[in-house]
Design a protein around this nucleic acid. Structure first.
Lengths: 192, 192, 192, 192
DNA sequence: CATGAATGAGGGTTCATTCAT
DNA sequence: GATGAATGAACCCTCATTCAT
C-alpha cells in the first residue's frame, strides 16, 4: 500500500513513509481542506491510523510538519524582502502578503492557527510565535520610519492577517477578493 | 415540559412551542456558544429532537430565527444612528460597531455566518444580504461625503467586520482587544 | 435485528428494546464476564452503539441496571434473614453469603465495584452505599449481642466480602473454594 | 541510550541490557503501577519494543523477573522470621505481613498475580507456587502448635493475602486500612 | 541480536438526521 | 403535529504484537 519508490509495502524506510504521509496529507488537505479526520487521512495514505499517530501525535503536529516547506519559502521571501530596495512600509506590506499566502496554504488553516495561538500547547504555537516576532520586526521598522501607526503591535497585525485569511477563504464565488481585504487592512475604510 | 409564556404546557400550540424553542436556544447559545448539538438543545427545551427539526430544518434556520430579535435591536440602532448628529463617517463607524455587536451575539457565530455568506442556500443568507445592503447605504453616504475610501463596497466592509468578530472571539488571553482590531479596520496599519 | 416479541426491527417500544439490551447484556456478561466493550455489546444486541449509549450512558449505568433484579433478590433474602430464627451472628453470616452471591452475579464484577466505591460518581455507588449500610445494620446487631468483634465497621466487612468475591472468581481450577474463603473471613486463620 | 552499570552504552551486551530493562521497569512500575504499556516501557528504557519482547515475551515474564529481587528480600525476611524468638503463630503473622508487602511492591500487582495463579502457564506461576509452599510451611508449624486453624491450607492463606492486597490498593480515600483488613484476615469478624 | 515502524482492531463517545408511532 | 428512539458513521486515540531491516 505504501507508495514508496519501489512500490512495495514494507517500510523501506521510515523516512520514505513519513514523506509519503506528508505527500498524501498535503494533497488531501489541498483538495478537501484541513478538516479531514486523521482516520480518513490514514486511509488515504493506505496506512493504519496508529502509524499516522506514531509519526504525528495529533493533527496540529501534522500541520506543523506540513507547513515546514512553506516556512522555508516564507523565510526565503523574508530575506528577499529585507534585501529589497523598498522602504519599511513597503517591506511590511510585502511581509503581510507573504504571511497571508502562508496562512492560505490549506483551506481551513486559519482556524487551527487561531486555536494554536490561544492554546499554548499546540505544535503550531512555535511557528506562530516566530512569525509574530518577525512581523514585529517589520512593524517596528515601519513605525520607526513613520510608515506605520505606532499604536499597533506585531501581534495585532498578525491577528489581522489571520482574520483576513480566514475571511478570504473560498471566496471563489464572491467578488470580494483578497486584494481588497488586504488593502482594507492596510489603509482602513476611512479616509486619511 | 414545554414552558410557554403562561408557564403552562399548552401543547398543540405550535406558535408557543416555536417561541419556547427560540427562548431556550437563545439562552443556551448565549451560555455555551452556538456549538451545541441539536439533541442537547431539544433536551434543554424539553421537546423531542424531531419537533426541533420540524420547526427549524437545520441549525442555520434556527440561528436565523434567533437573530431576528437582534435584528430588531439592530434596526433600532440603525434608526438612532441615522437620526444622530454625526457626520456620515461617524455614522458608518457606529453602524460597524453595531454590526460587530450583532455578530458577537453568540460565541461561534462568525463561522456559520461566513459559511452562509458563501453557500447561497443558507437560511442566514437573507439576513446577511440585508445587513450588507444597509452597510452599503452607510458606506455610500460616507464615501459621498469623503469620509470613506471609494474603492470599497458594503460587502467588503461587512466581511471585514465579520473577520474582526471572528478574530476577537475568546481573546481573553491576549492583549489584542476588539477595540484595537476595530481601530485597525478603520484606519489600517499604515500611516495616512 | 431487535429481537422483540414480534420479531420486527422497528422500535416497537423503547421499553422492549431496553429490556432486549438488558437481556443481551445479562447473557453476554454471564458468558464472557463484564469485560466486554460497549461496542461489542451493541453488536451482540444487533443495535447501533449510540442506541446502547442512549439507554445507558456508560457501562457502570448498564451494570447498575443489570444488578437491579439481583438487588431485589437480595432484598428478599435480607428480609428472610431478618425474620429467621438465628442469632445476630448467624444472620450476619447469612447476609455476607447473600452479599457474596450478589457480587458474583457476573464474572469481573468486583473490580468495577471497587472502582465505584472509590470514585464517588459511578452509577454503582448508590448500590454499594446501600449495601454497606445494610451490612452495618447486621454487623451492629451482631456486635451488640457479642457475636462480632467491635473493632470492625460495616464498610470493613463489605470490603472483605468484595475481596473474597474477587479472589473466588474463576476458581474452577483451584481447590480453594469460596466456602473456605468465607470461613476464613469469618474466623480468621488464627485460633481463638 | 542503554545505561548500564558503567554508565556507558555497552550495546551487544545482552546481560547489561536485560539489567537495564529491569531497572527501568522497576522504577516505572513503582511510579505508575503495572498498567503501563510495553511500548511506554521500552521508550522509558530507550530501547526498541522488540528488544523488550525478546528479553521478556510478555508482561508477566517481565513482572516475574522484576519480582526476583523482592523475592530475595522476602527470603531474607523469611530467614529472619524463622530465627526469631516468637511462636509459630507470630511467625506466620510476620510471614503474612511480608507476603503482603511483596504483593504491594507495585500498584496493580494483585491482578496479574491472580490471573497467573489461575492460568497455569504464566511466568508468575512458579513464584506463586514457591510462596505458597513457604506459606504452607509456616502454616503447618502454626497448626502443629495450635496457633492456626487446621482446616486451612497454605494456598488458602496465600489467596487471602492476595485478596487483602487487592482490596487495600488505593484505599487512600477510605478509612479501611490495610491493618484493619489484616486483622480481619487473622481473627475474622466473628468473636472467637 | 537489536531495531522501531507498522499493524489494525478496539477503546469510549458524539452527532445530525430519519422514522415508526 | 409531536415524539424520542434508532441509526451508524465519524471522532481521536491506544495497545500488544509482528516483521522487515
Amino acid at each position: 500500500m505504501v507508495a514508496s519508490d519501489n512500490a512495495r509495502q514494507p517500510r523501506k524506510d521510515a523516512v520514505a513513509n513519513r514523506a509519503h504521509i506528508l505527500d498524501t496529507a498535503a494533497r488531501v488537505f489541498a483538495e478537501e481542506g484541513v478538516n479531514v479526520s486523521m482516520d480518513a487521512l490514514a486511509k488515504h495514505a493506505g496506512i493504519g491510523s496508529a502509524t499516522l499517530y506514531r509519526n504525528f501525535p495529533n493533527k496540529d503536529a501534522l500541520l506543523a510538519a506540513l507547513l515546514a516547506p512553506h516556512h522555508e519559502r516564507l523565510a526565503t521571501r523574508r530575506i528577499a524582502i529585507e534585501r529589497s530596495d523598498g522602504d519599511a512600509g513597503q517591506k511590511l506590506q510585502q511581509w503581510i502578503d507573504a504571511l497571508g499566502d502562508w496562512m492560505l496554504a490549506f483551506e481551513g488553516l486559519p482556524e487551527p492557527l487561531r486555536e494554536a495561538w490561544m492554546t499554548d500547547t499546540s505544535a503550531l504555537k512555535p511557528a506562530c510565535d516566530g512569525l509574530i516576532a518577525t512581523t514585529e520586526k517589520f512593524l517596528d521598522a515601519a513605525q520607526r520610519d513613520g510608515f506605520s501607526r505606532p499604536c499597533l503591535s506585531g501581534r495585532d497585525v498578525f491577528i489581522g492577517v489571520m482574520a483576513l485569511a480566514w475571511a478570504s477563504e473560498q471566496t471563489t464565488v464572491g467578488r470580494t477578493s483578497r486584494a481588497v481585504l488586504s488593502d482594507m487592512l492596510r489603509n482602513g475604510w476611512a479616509v486619511g
